[in-house]
Simulated assay, not measured.
Amino acid sequence: MATPSGQTVNVHDLDVPQLADVRKQLEDELAHLTNSFAQLNQAQAKFRACIENVAEISPNNAGKTILVPLTNSLYVPGKLADPENVIVDVGTGYYVEKTRTQATAHYTAKVAYLRSNLATLEETLQKKRDNLNYVTNILQGKLQAQAQAKA
Results as ranks from 00 to 15, higher is better:
G6W: 01
G6F: 03
G6E: 06
V9D: 04
V16N: 13
Q18V: 08
L19A: 04
V22L: 15
V22A: 14
R23H: 13
L26R: 12
L26N: 15
D28L: 11
L30M: 01
T34K: 08
S36T: 07
A38D: 05
Q39C: 04
Q39I: 00
N41Q: 14
Q42I: 00
A43Q: 14
K46P: 00
F47I: 01
R48S: 12
I51D: 06
V54H: 00
A55K: 15
A55W: 01
E56L: 13
I57D: 02
I57A: 11
S58I: 02
P59V: 01
A62V: 14
G63P: 12
K64N: 14
K64V: 05
K64F: 09
T65D: 07
T65C: 02
V68R: 09
T71Q: 03
T71P: 04
S73C: 04
V76A: 14
K79G: 00
L80S: 09
A81N: 10
A81D: 15
D82L: 02
D82A: 03
P83T: 02
N85S: 11
V86F: 01
V88F: 03
V90Q: 10
T92R: 07
G93K: 03
Y95M: 04
E97M: 08
K98P: 09
K98N: 04
R100P: 07
R100T: 08
T101W: 01
K110M: 12
R115G: 10
N117G: 12
N117Y: 04
N117I: 00
L118R: 05
E123P: 00
E123G: 09
L125T: 06
Q126P: 06
K127T: 10
K128E: 15
K128G: 09
Y134T: 09
V135W: 02
I138S: 05
L139N: 05
L139A: 10
G141Q: 14
G141V: 06
K142I: 01
K142T: 05
L143G: 01
L143H: 03
A147R: 12
Q148F: 12
A151W: 12
